[in-house]
């Protein structure tokens, strides 16, 4: 549908000016995460860090909306330590126009994140926020929903397809029953599922160009956010491992074992 849009580009009402995308710095999804021996946390020293995979998808979607002429600016934001500048630079190299690092040395719960994003929305006048459906470290899957709640705007979570027309969007969501389609008014918050798009690779010249793009630093403390009652992680432990079982040599033996266990 994107390709045979009846309206010539200039004739569209471009309702979305600025898109805000959250980029979280997380342990790369290929790393086998281990719990520290004292149970205080998981081991993150010397481990490869990346942009949360869902957030790359969120950024890709924002860039495509801008490239279609449906938005004018893409802003990436990360809340975390100074190290997160690395992920923001990658975001700028992918094509974002502006990056914001809200610096915090302690981890921020989703409600605090939502309030942080809301303060940027109020400051910069954002029309669309695209976040990942979950951060693959805490696996919370909360921030987009909380942000839309405190903003009083629609949420379209677990999205695999987003069509913007004027001040409305039609979103296909991946739900347990299949694919749900909803229509929402903008501004709104979207959270991305894996099948929304295939994020682009960053090319070397883009990395060079990104060095000149603005990366703004804000101290979390300066935003004066009340993060709400904290949920404390008091301990981490490794999961119960499943034992390696038996190998069978052929289908007949498999059937025999299944029958013995009453499973076939």
């Amino acid at each position: 549908m994107d390709n045979n849009d009846p309206l010539p580009l200039g004739a569209r009402s471009n309702e979305v000016e600025k898109i805000l995308v959250g980029l979280k710095r997380v342990v790369d999804y290929n790393v086998r995460v281990r719990v520290k021996s004292d149970g205080s946390d998981v081991e993150t020293d010397g481990v490869k860090m990346s942009i949360n995979p869902f957030d790359e998808i969120a950024l890709e979607e924002a860039l495509r909306i801008k490239e279609r002429g449906d938005a004018s600016e893409v802003i990436v934001i990360s809340v975390g330590t100074v190290d997160a500048q690395q992920q923001l630079r990658t975001g700028l190299a992918m094509g974002a126009d502006h990056a914001i690092l809200v610096e915090s040395d302690s981890s921020v719960d989703p409600l605090g994140l939502a309030q942080t994003f809301k303060s940027i929305i109020d400051r910069d006048g954002i029309d669309l926020v695209i976040l990942g459906k979950q951060a693959i470290d805490d696996d919370n899957s909360q921030t987009a929903q909380m942000l839309s709640a405190i903003w009083g705007r629609p949420q379209a979570t677990f999205a695999s397809k987003l069509d913007i027309a004027g001040n409305k969007a039609t979103v296909t969501r991946e739900v347990d029953a299949g694919l749900e389609v909803i229509e929402i008014d903008l501004p709104a918050v979207i959270s991305t599922d894996l099948r929304m798009n295939e994020p682009r690779y960053v090319k070397l010249p883009d990395i060079m160009k990104a060095r000149k793009k603005p990366l703004e630093l804000i101290a979390m403390a300066d935003l004066g956010i009340d993060q709400g009652p904290e949920i404390k992680s008091v301990m981490f432990e490794p999961p119960l491992e499943r034992e390696r079982g038996v190998m069978v040599n052929d289908v007949a033996s498999l059937v025999a074992v299944l029958k013995e266990k009453g499973l076939a």
């Binding site: 995460v33 719990v35 998981v42 949920i231």
Partner: peptide, 29 residues
Amino acid sequence: VNQISDIMSVESSHIFKRPVYAGSAIATV
């Protein structure tokens, strides 16, 4: 308030276990 996702066991009325990092670790919250 904040929210707890994916309770896998109840330790007390306000203490729970939940998986993080795709289940590579279990957090007590």
